[in-house]
């Protein structure tokens, strides 16, 4: 090693082979990432394409192009009603789960108290429980226990269940944001004679708001797309995923594809919009 006499001034340059290898390594990751993204979008593309299928009884094989499903997607009985139910369930569950979950996250990060480990388990176990077990358990208690106090399967039980399974995910998401917060910022506010309430609303809340919004979006998408638990606790009420599943026995009508794809476009626009507003606000603060 000591005998090598490379000129000390020359900068380190990898050999051509090494560079080619590095180039390939760099682009290999990006290339496979693009392939994976295409794979993720493949069924969405099929859903979109088959919303234009001029199908007969079943919408499985391509039979010809038509606009008719897009002109009146509510033509199929139950499609739009179930969509409205899903949106209502999603909105209520998201609101309640986000508020309750944010409070829990604040307690878990900011305070020491007896029973913290038990609370951690209580929050973690619902996420590690298969949906089918939660659905089964909820069904037994709704049918055999809570029916005695006048609760029957329907809209209400769907909302109760959705709040329950969204809650843990909200806690985990908000917790991460609160943990990344520097406690000295809040201490500074206290030092400047802000009351605890003022400190929370003027300092803590704005700083954790992105985490809360992220948690709310997660909760809504979990609620909106849930089928397994909903199927157990919904009784005669139908949500959009349940409508699609029931229809799949006979063949999903293309109108369901229209609604599903529209929700996809709407959600993507919302997410991009939120990103744009977020970066605009960040720039304004900096500038």
């Amino acid at each position: 090693m000591t005998t090598t006499t490379a000129p000390a001034s020359a900068p380190y340059r990898p050999s051509a082979a090494k560079r080619a290898q590095l180039w390939l390594a760099n682009h290999f990751a990006m290339l496979s990432a693009i392939l994976v993204l295409l794979y993720l979008f493949l069924p969405v593309a099929y859903t979109f394409a088959f919303s234009f299928n001029d199908h007969g009884k079943t919408n499985i094989v391509w039979q010809g192009f038509t606009w008719k499903h897009w002109q009146d997607p509510c033509r199929v009985a139950g499609a739009c009603e179930s969509l409205v139910t899903s949106l209502q369930v999603g909105a209520i569950s998201t609101l309640v789960a986000t508020v309750l979950g944010t409070l829990m996250a604040l307690a878990m990060v900011r305070y020491r108290f007896r029973g913290k480990a038990a609370s951690n388990v209580l929050i973690f176990v619902p996420m590690a429980t298969p949906e089918i077990v939660m659905g089964a358990a909820l069904l037994t208690i709704f049918v055999q226990g809570f029916s005695n106090i006048g609760i029957s399967l329907g809209f209400g039980t769907i909302v109760f269940a959705h709040i329950m399974f969204c809650l843990s995910f909200v806690v985990v998401t908000v917790k991460a944001r609160v943990q990344s917060l520097d406690p000295r910022i809040e201490e500074a506010a206290q030092d400047l004679y802000a009351s605890p309430m003022q400190t929370f609303w003027k300092v803590t809340f704005p700083l954790i708001l992105p985490g809360i919004l992220g948690a709310a979006m997660l909760a809504f998408s979990l609620s909106f797309d849930d089928f397994i638990i909903t199927n157990f606790v919904s009784g005669n009420e139908s949500t959009f995923p349940k409508f699609v599943y029931v229809a799949s026995r006979r063949g999903i009508p293309a109108e369901a594809n229209v609604i599903g794809f529209s929700m996809f476009v709407l959600a993507v626009l919302l997410v991009i919009g939120a990103q744009v507003v977020g970066s605009w606000r960040a720039n304004r603060v900096k500038g």
Binding site: L40, P43, V44, T47, F227, P241, V244, G260, F264
Partner: peptide
Amino acid sequence: APFFTSFILRTFA
């Protein structure tokens, strides 16, 4: 994004 299309629709696809 793909997960905003109902998971049953995608499985059916």
